[in-house]
Design a binder for these strands. Sequence first.
DNA 1: TAAGATAAGAGGGACAT
DNA 2: ATGTCAGTCTTATCTTA
Length: 300
Amino acid sequence: MQNSTVCSMCKEDQTIITDLLTGEIVCSKCGLVISDKIQDTRQEWRDFVNSEEAKDRRRTGMPTSLARHDMGLYTMIGRGRKDARGQVLDASMRSTMGRLRTWDLRTQASANRNLRTAFNQLNILKDKLGLPDAIIEKTAYIYRKAHERGLVRGRQTAAALAAALYLACRQEGTPRTLKEICLISNLKRKAISREYRDMVIELDIRIPTVDPTKCIARIANQINLNQKIKQKAINIMNAATKSELSAGKSPMGLAASILYLSCLINGGSISQTVFAQTAGVTEVTIRNICRNLRNHLDLS
DNA sequence: TAAGATAAGAGGGACAT
DNA sequence: ATGTCAGTCTTATCTTA
């Protein structure tokens, strides 16, 4: 999806790439991230009516979404005194319907209470993190699965939800750290990671490893590094991966360290602190990784 | 003021018991 | 299941340029 907008850095009318997967709007000329909090504003393209109206592709109703406790579809037993053919119901049928209505509401309330609160919280998280709908849907899907398996019962709903969100991000290859999710959801890392582990095991989910080049892109965009530095960083990253220097390192720490080195090589003077804070690791980690890289790679 | 060094401690994976 | 071990990362503090 592309828009034409004026980039604040180039000051020119440039083509802007909107990446709905990572939730970023990126200038195609200079790589500046204009905003990392976008909404998916694409139209609904589905047809619901096979007629002239269908050509007018306006939204035709509330979209169904997994991120609603009832998936946006629900039925209520009405209070009317007539049946579908307009015949007046007799007394016994009316009382039957009354009891059905009561139980319907009750079961909906108890079975869905957890999902309802969870998805309310999910919507709050969505706004805070500015994540695309695809991730939110995935989170809701994972949460439902976990809920079915009884992984949520007796645990913190919020922690389970945060774990599902983290899982969804990992699966979509959108680099969000556990730390960020802790911060935004106000939960202990331990609680989230325990849920996360249980979900991975119980639901048998395969997690792709974090793509370190995506981490590079994310950090580089956040501190507005130019294309040259980014390219050099990716080269170093490839070399590091090849000589297995990246094994066991935190991808964000590695990416930040490599960007720092790349910045130095290109004559930049951005402090380790900036990289550390952006990546969510400490300066010490950056230093250690840098030392290791400098010892084993020819950096020039 | 940024960068480097060092030490103590936390958390998690691999492995053996 | 529980304990140990090596390795990573964090926090905190001090020194150096």
